[in-house]
Amino acid sequence: MIEIKNLTKDYGKVKAIEDVSFTVEKGEIVGFLGPNGAGKSTTMNIITGFISSTSGTVRVAGHDILENPVEVKKHIGYLPEQPPLYQDMTVSEFLDFCASLKKVAPREWKSQKKDIMELVKVTHVSHRLIKNLSKGYKQRVGLAQALVGSPEVLILDEPTVGLDPKQIIEIRRLIKALGKNHTIILSTHILPEVSAICDRVIIINKGRIVAIDTPENLSRKLSDFSRFTITVAGPQKKVREILQGVEGVKDVEVSSTFNEDEASYIVEADKDIDVRKPIFNKLAAAGYPILELRSMNLSLEEVFLQLTTTEAKEVV
């Protein structure tokens, strides 16, 4: 659906993005994740044809953005970071304007408008001026604008920024629902958002893609250590000693103590050595039963911190 190859954008000597390539399949929800200034908005502005790249190609639904911009734009609904709203119009007037701008057939538009307004829940404010709406409603009208003409591709730049928690949950649910019929790229610097809605994550930092994968795979791949929580019945000091004695274990920490003879530990071990069996054997030999043993993958949050603080070359 969307093919991006070797996209680079220079601003003078500064490279806003460099050699960005990825593809998005039909029906996918892809999260674009990166800190502020990573190049998320730049990439999105290029895909939608608002600015052009210095080099590289963008193809949407088989059309090249430079050769056939109008055709590409027909397939895209775009919600930029700042929702593009005419403050002096009512919601209803504004959506009508967008529809005629996007050349939606008037007969089709009547029922579509009703559907869109119900979907983003702005029906009851449709006759109010946009400038009098709250931030949350403005964001919804911005989303409605992107949906006009039911484009196959939706590009949403930080769709939940500046909303209150309840609205964030609503918008996320809405995006997830839209994902059934649309291909969606959304950018965010909020991690839980990605794991909540996206099928795949593209992590971008300083204009370069650092990782593309599913949220689950990313956290698995990235852990340099395998980590376990283990709950053992037995005196803490002795259990620690035994655990630390196992080959491959790097670190043992007590995470919670239930009572004198029962505690949970976090064990960090080498990725390449399976330490679970020796741990079991040694503890069993010492007569301290394991009550629980659970592997802990890194949360995406930690993945992100790792990705953006270290050069994670092996990852890609």
């Binding site: 502005n45 939608t48 608002f50 109008v70 734009k73 700042q82 593009p84 709203l85 701008l101 996007k102």
Partner: peptide, 13 residues
Amino acid sequence: SGTEVLLMTSPVR
């Protein structure tokens, strides 16, 4: 107001 983006990313020349 940012509406330039809307005009420029709509299928019009």
